[in-house]
């Protein structure tokens, strides 16, 4: 486990204090290896988004440790300093809320490319167009503003922007929940390609289908704790905990197709 890219040890997050304290994350430990997709699945209020924010360095845990490439992500009081800030990128649930409505997709990406220091303005634009192209966004669509793009396109722009930093880890918090099924398939194919290219992905989602499709390992979260974890295939085929069984039984639609095939 020493070559884990991200390692979380005994992390707890508590909001508020005294009798009104909410223990959102309780003594949670996990690790993400290079080139691996790890799922964190749970329902609303399970603490999964808080945990995602902890991984991203947006929420400081009350106790426990988050390590990236062997070192604490907090150095001199700040999360992900220097080079590390580039290496860990995040994609959020709502692509509309995370893109500036007044600038085009191309500007949004090329801005990020330049922040992470890639040559001249011209180079940045060429690089951005190439990135957007890989995400299936045409040059014509690259000139559009977020409101002119579909939800799936917006989400792919967000991914392009995250990738412009050439990260080694992508943290994705419910990236597919706001988009149509066919757009979801496009995004998942894209993620799969990135995994093959050596990127690590932490996928936080309440959608078990997405988790089952993309991840190798999964952590099932409930009330701030992991109730079950392991290889995704094993957890789905043979869930040990009552809660996991219940979750899996709630996935719609598989019965009919099982019956037909």
């Amino acid at each position: 486990m020493s070559d884990a890219l991200i390692e979380v040890r005994d992390v707890s997050v508590t909001f508020g204090s005294g009798s009104r304290a909410v223990r959102a994350v309780r003594q949670v430990s996990l690790h993400i290896e290079k080139g691996e997709a790890v799922g964190i699945v749970g329902e609303s209020g399970s603490g999964k988004s808080t945990l995602a924010r902890v991984l991203a360095g947006l929420q400081r845990p009350n106790s426990g440790e988050v390590r990236f490439a062997g070192e604490s992500i907090y150095q001199r009081g700040k999360a992900y300093r220097g080079e590390n800030r580039r290496l860990v990128q995040m994609v959020f649930q709502d692509p509309y809320g995370s893109l500036n409505p007044r600038i085009t997709a191309l500007s949004a990406v090329s801005e990020a490319v330049r922040v992470h220091g890639v040559g001249s303005r011209k180079d940045a634009i060429a690089k951005s167009l190439e990135l957007l192209g890989r995400m299936g966004i045409s040059e014509r669509d690259a000139g559009k503003k977020p409101r002119q793009l579909s939800g799936g396109q917006r989400q792919r722009v967000s991914v392009a922007r995250a990738l412009s930093a050439q990260p080694s880890v992508l943290l994705a918090d419910e990236p597919t929940s706001a988009i149509d099924q066919s757009a979801q398939a496009q995004l998942l194919n894209l993620f799969r390609g990135l995994l093959d290219g050596g990127l690590s992905i932490a996928l936080v989602s309440h959608d078990l289908g997405v988790i089952r499709y993309l991840t190798q390992r999964v952590y099932v979260m409930k009330d701030g704790e992991f109730v079950e974890s392991g290889l995704t295939v094993e957890v789905f085929d043979n869930p040990q905990q009552e809660y996991t069984k219940q979750l899996i039984a709630s996935i719609p639609g598989r019965e009919l197709h099982k019956a037909l095939s």
Binding site: Q184, A185, N189, G209, R212, T232, V233, I251, G253, H257
Partner: peptide
Amino acid sequence: SRIDISTPGAPLI
């Protein structure tokens, strides 16, 4: 393009 009936990891059409 449905993930619930595709093989995990296989390309989605």
